[in-house]
Nucleic acid binder design. Sequence first.
DNA 1: CACTATATGTCAGAATACTGACATGAGTCA
DNA 2: TGACTCATGTCAGTATTCTGACATATAGTG
Lengths: 150, 150
Amino acid sequence: MSQDSPGIDLETSLGYLLKEASSALRTRMEAVLRPLGMTITHYSCLELLAQRAGLSNSELARGAFVTRQSMNVLLQTLEHDGLVTRPDRAPSGRVLPVELTPKGRRQLATASTAVKGVEDRMISALSPEERALFGDMLARSIAALREWDS
Amino acid sequence: MSQDSPGIDLETSLGYLLKEASSALRTRMEAVLRPLGMTITHYSCLELLAQRAGLSNSELARGAFVTRQSMNVLLQTLEHDGLVTRPDRAPSGRVLPVELTPKGRRQLATASTAVKGVEDRMISALSPEERALFGDMLARSIAALREWDS
DNA sequence: CACTATATGTCAGAATACTGACATGAGTCA
DNA sequence: TGACTCATGTCAGTATTCTGACATATAGTG
């Protein structure tokens, strides 16, 4: 039971809590996006494109935290459904800039409000000052985890 | 190259930051567990069992944030590899209590050390006082996200 | 100019997790 | 007792993501 070793106490582990929070957020987002026929990656892709039009497949993949292979199959579906467009040939190099269509923009609008509701629910547990600090601590944690990147 | 920290508004979203932090933690954990031939779910299962011996398949699934079907597949592998044991018949009801074998305990020991190193790296960006507050904020966020269930 | 390194898009296969469904056992309540 | 509800373990099929690999295009270096 409570044998030591270099064991990690999951009850107080910040890593476990972080995963737990991320899982809860993911579950809630899936719940509100499912009626809209969208997955989280699907929504993330559209949201990224709305803020930075012309992102490439690889850039979208990094922004949505999936591999570029996974993003590519998603983009094929989005393109087929008329939500995004890609040029037939790369304007420069091999990079294919992706853009939202009006239809994609409309779909994003409804999804964005739904997702914002989930995020608002989450941060409702934090005071305005705490929200700033929370974001700052998250950013510092991210930086520390990537510190010795190769 | 515009691959690092583009000035998108998503960077100020706490939901996105949370997902980003979770992704960074996941990447680091995968990096240290891969040489040991373990996945995160694999490790999580062993860690859960070390702290609470006799957990059922469904309980392990909830603790590792996967479905009980996925956990069952993993448990079959772990059982085949001699890392955990399950009784042939349920002592009560249908619940099959899972237990670590000495071999499983040894494998967990090395993995736990590696994972602890990752977590230590992450919280090194936070002061001791901040760590407590960080955990508290995460717990409150989790509670807020789940109180919706009604 | 060649050579190298990096990044991209893409294809194919494998690993992993999920949804749906079913039977079983325990607990609750009329 | 019997009907109902709930949770569990399990089977089957599907879906999504990942790993590995390759050719190509750009930039940097000698």
